[in-house]
Nucleic acid binder design. Structure first.
Length: 158
DNA sequence: GCCAACGTTGGC
DNA sequence: GCCAACGTTGGC
């Protein structure tokens, strides 16, 4: 079972600083609208799993912090909010299509840029780096997790 | 703004 | 179930 994940967040919506400033440093991970990512949350992600907090769609894409999964999944309320960009008219409250879980920030790190990840031979095979990858949640194996912790100079045991 | 790559939709 | 058209992601 995978124990480590990389989760993308647009810093304009929720940056690592926002997560660190939230109550209990915990944020609800709203807005996942991809079935594969949803299924990771529903079927594989467990409380306590390590998370690489990744900034995407911004001027400096890269890993910005370490977090952990802090809850099981529940219905994502934004799917039922017509004014939300994440509104899904086809989803019914009695059968919610989209889920969220809570993510607790552990620490902010230096920004580890995408280019540095790509340049590191030890990170070959990281799902994030696969050609054409767009998934907002990807698994990270323990060797890659350890390597990234080393690059960030943080303890592997988070 | 470009565009490659991928996901979703909908007609058949 | 196929697949063309369209929409989205996300780095550059």
């Amino acid at each position: 079972m995978t124990r480590y994940w990389l989760m993308k967040s647009e810093p304009s919506e929720c940056a690592i600083d926002d997560a660190m400033a939230a109550p209990q440093r915990t944020v609800a991970w709203t807005g996942v609208r991809n079935y594969q990512a949803r299924n990771f949350m529903r079927d594989a992600m467990q409380v306590g799993d390590g998370v690489l907090f990744y900034h995407s769609s911004c001027c400096e894409p890269g890993i910005a912090g370490i977090a952990r999964i802090a809850s099981a999944t529940r219905s994502d309320p934004t799917q039922f909010e017509p004014q939300s960009p994440y509104f899904d008219a086809a989803s019914k409250p009695e059968a919610p299509r989209w889920l969220l879980l809570e993510v607790q920030a552990e620490r902010k790190t230096r920004l580890l840029p995408l280019a540095e990840l790509r340049a590191d031979a030890a990170l070959a095979g990281l799902v994030l780096l696969r050609r054409g990858n767009r998934l907002s949640i990807t698994p990270v194996d323990s060797a890659h997790w350890a390597r990234i912790c080393l690059l960030l100079q943080v303890p592997t045991a988070h």
